[in-house]
């Protein structure tokens, strides 16, 4: 598939900002590499869906959001949680299943939540988060709050009825939702062209009169720019926007995937376009980054990860006596 981008090849204009984006992507990459290792060591169980290769999307989109905006993400959401400001420690402890985790170990890798930072999951039903995002935006509209709800989902969700219903409702009621489609070309193991009669995804959103853009999701600078324009449109019009980010997952779908459905050659080809590698190369060419600075960055991240693992190891297991808590609220009238 060709990468036809409406936004790409953005120039590097700000050293500090570029380094900030690199740092954020690298944090996600190294954190997830450690997570995979800990999965093999059986410290993390259940499903573990890695975002490796797709970091530019979450990092770029986060640049367009304020602390007051909301995010609804999928089961591949470690990166979104981190750019939302959650600590590695509370995410790692969650994946360990410890009570110190952001969801007390009740959710695991697929269900990261943060009330203060307005991260509404970690939704593991494909398409299931879209209606919720529409509702969050409706609440903002009714309460006259000028906020954006950012809803991230994979291209697989486009096949779900809830995608179409949500596009329609958000457009019909003009609700401020930034729909971010992370098109990594495969819905688990099924290629886009094998599941969709029309693979030009913005056309589907456009059919509901939702404005759209497509961006090279391997270029964080381009994603940040496209997301800024998209979120500006949402804030100005109060209506939705559909942003397609063309990206690729370098790792298997989850830890149980022999990858029969795609060739090694294809994966290698995409790895050449690694968002972290390409940004760091551009920064080096520009003279804004050298090896020692990169090493220092890596060292800082390694320390942060080590501390997160330590926190997860030290964190307690929730008492089994508490098993039936959080089925219903423990106090109060709303």
């Amino acid at each position: 598939m060709t990468i036809a981008s409406s936004v790409s090849g953005q120039p590097l204009v700000d050293q500090e900002h570029s380094l900030h984006l690199l740092h954020r992507m690298l944090r996600i990459r190294r954190f997830e590499e450690k997570s995979a290792e800990l999965y093999s060591a059986m410290k993390i169980r259940g499903f573990l869906h890695l975002y490796i290769g797709e970091e530019a999307v979450a990092v770029g989109v986060a640049e367009a959001l304020t602390a007051d905006d909301a995010v609804v993400a999928t089961y591949r959401e470690h990166g979104h949680a981190m750019v939302r400001g959650m600590s590695m420690a509370e995410i790692m402890a969650e994946m360990y299943g410890k009570v110190g985790g952001c969801s007390r170990g009740r959710g695991g890798s697929m269900h990261l939540f943060d009330a203060e930072r307005r991260l509404y999951g970690g939704n593991a039903i494909v398409g299931g988060g879209l209606p919720v995002a529409v509702g969050l935006a409706l609440a903002d509209r009714l309460q006259k709050k000028n906020r954006v709800t950012c809803c991230c989902f994979g291209e697989g969700a486009v096949a779900e009825g809830e995608f179409h219903e949500s596009m329609n409702l958000a457009a019909l009621w003009q609700l401020p939702v930034l729909f971010v489609c992370e098109n990594n070309l495969y819905a688990m193991g099924t290629a886009l062209q094998l599941s969709e009669s029309v693979i030009d995804l913005p056309r589907k959103a456009a059919a509901y009169a939702v404005p759209t853009a497509t961006v090279d999701g391997m270029d964080v600078i381009a994603v940040a720019e496209a997301a800024r324009k998209a979120s500006d449109t949402v804030r100005e019009t109060g209506g939705p926007f559909f942003l397609e980010c063309r990206t690729y997952r370098f790792r298997p779908h989850s830890m149980f995937d022999p990858e029969f459905y795609r060739s090694k050659q294809e994966v290698e080809g995409w790895k050449q376009r690694c968002p972290i590698l390409s940004l760091s190369n551009r920064l080096k060419e520009r003279g804004w980054l050298d090896e020692s600075a990169l090493e220092q960055l890596e060292a800082e991240i390694a320390t942060e990860i080590a501390e997160a693992v330590d926190f997860a190891e030290q964190s307690a297991w929730e008492s089994v006596e508490d098993l039936t808590r959080f089925v219903y609220s423990e106090s109060g009238v709303n």
Binding site: L130, P131, V132, V134, G135, A139, L142, Q143, N168, L169
Partner: peptide, 15 residues
């Protein structure tokens, strides 16, 4: 599905 889900989102959002 979507207007029920939107109800959930609106409830989470303070309505």
């Amino acid at each position: 599905s979507t207007f029920t889900g939107a109800g959930i989102g609106a409830a989470l959002g303070g309505m």
